[in-house]
Amino acid sequence: MVDVSQHKLVPEHILLDDPEEIEEVLEEYNVSKTNLPKIRTKDSALPEGAEPGDVVKIVRESRTTDRAVVYRLVIE
């Protein structure tokens, strides 16, 4: 299998396994978990061991700033 994470179109995906960290993120943006953008469990770039309900931190090389950090909720 091809290592998807090596492709230049794929940004870094990090699984947030510390519930406190997730709390912090939700507080910072003042949203609930379900308001986050989603990512499917069958997504090829999803880190191993991610279950529905987990939150993935994505660090993009942004076109407008240097690095943009976004979060996606794992669903389905």
Partner: peptide, 20 residues
């Protein structure tokens, strides 16, 4: 496999995921 691309966004989605 790290630089090859195609112009079909669905193929990119299937192989590299939603962020790609």
């Amino acid at each position: 496999a790290s630089r090859t691309t195609c112009n079909n966004i669905h193929e990119i989605y299937r192989n590299l995921g939603v962020e790609a």
